[in-house]
Amino acid sequence: MFYLLSFFWNDWLSITMPRHQLIQLPAMLLLGILLAYCFSTLAIQDMYWGIAILIFIMASFIFWMLPHSIDVAVINKHFNRVMHINMLLSGFLLILVFRKIFFEVKILFLGMITAMLLASGITLSVFNMLLCSSFSIEQQKQTGLYLIFIAIALFIFTAITFFSYLRNRSK
């Protein structure tokens, strides 16, 4: 799957911004998440390490949303592959951390990612200046709109996770 996404379909996925940002990037993250499920016993036990890794993951998301990084990733195949590996690793580590980390940190992380996606989505959808020279302004606005949808879905997911953790928590 990684081969297909990173090599075989790479050209197709890099043609438009929504494909690059909304299909390729999340697909790599999802792949990492699925990979983690293959190692069901692996988990990051230490809370401090867990938080440090979550910060790394958040920083990775921010980095790959920066217009300059997107541009370079589209132009330079090697850099693009760094993005793929980074996202794969992020997805993988995310699950390892989530297996043991406190509820509070989990919801905080999900909440902050939701907020970040919502803010970026709205920003991209209203911005009238081209941010990534590799794409067009229509694609940029389209990406923004879909990012808002993803953020809303993640908000609902966060709410469900929140309530399901609080349900039947008797000791």
């Binding site: 909440g111 939701t114 911005f127 966060t158």
Partner: peptide, 27 residues
Amino acid sequence: GVFALIIGAAMLIMYLLQSFEPSLAFD
């Protein structure tokens, strides 16, 4: 409060983005 704080965070991030990019115009 949990939901208000998440929406508040999104709004404050937009303020922050606007402070870095003055040409942005939100609704």
